[in-house]
Simulated assay, not measured.
Amino acid sequence: MTTDKSSPKTPTCVRCGRTYDGSGDWNINYRHGVTVGYLCPDDQTPGDNAEAVINEATGAGTVHEVQPGSPEHAEAVVQHVYAMTQEVLREFLERVVNSAFGMALDPHALADQAVERISGTIGDGGNPEGLRRVVQEMLQEMLDEMHGGESS
């Protein structure tokens, strides 16, 4: 495994917590172009292995590594934060649609969920409140778009 230079974390397996020691065939998991985790050889399922082989053979899993501090890294981080925030909102809306009862929209709770996911993948940049503010603004923009540009 070549560790992703854009990741600030020491590689550890997302399933068992084992720290990468330089041996074995580890997989790097990417989401939205950002490293979100590593899988040690002992915790890889046949599906994980098949996906890695297919991605490697087809180039589908190719992710351009970027250096922290570069404009490309900043753009990848922004895309990841935006995509994770969208994902939290989409999951909430799916729960509303699948629920027999109405559910109240709590933007602060949704922002907390998004920040928790983002912090678990790429960290919070040492400024969790700043990240929370950015996520809340993104959520508000998404909600405004859903309401035809009206502020909610």
Rank of each mutant, 00 (worst) to 15 (best):
M84V: 11
T35M: 08
H64M: 09
E141D: 15
R15G: 10
G61H: 06
V78W: 14
L143E: 00
R31H: 13
R133N: 13
E87A: 13
E116Y: 09
E94C: 07
L93K: 15
E145T: 12
E56N: 14
A50D: 13
H64P: 00
D48V: 04
H108M: 14
I122R: 06
V36Y: 04
E65H: 11
G22Q: 10
C40G: 04
Q86V: 01
C13L: 07
K9W: 13
D106C: 03
K5Q: 11
A109W: 08
D106I: 05
L105M: 09
T2Y: 09
S99G: 06
L110D: 00
P8R: 14
T19D: 12
V63C: 05
D4V: 07
P11F: 00
T12I: 09
S7K: 05
L131V: 04
E94K: 13
V96C: 06
S99W: 03
R90E: 12
L39W: 01
G37T: 04
A111I: 00
V78T: 15
S119N: 02
T3C: 09
N49I: 15
P11H: 01
T2W: 10
N98Y: 08
P71G: 05
V134Q: 09
E145R: 14
L89W: 04
G59I: 06
L89T: 01
A60V: 13
L131R: 03
D21Q: 04
Q86Y: 02
G69R: 13
G125F: 05
R31A: 15
Y30K: 05
R90G: 12
T85K: 04
V135Q: 06
V53K: 14
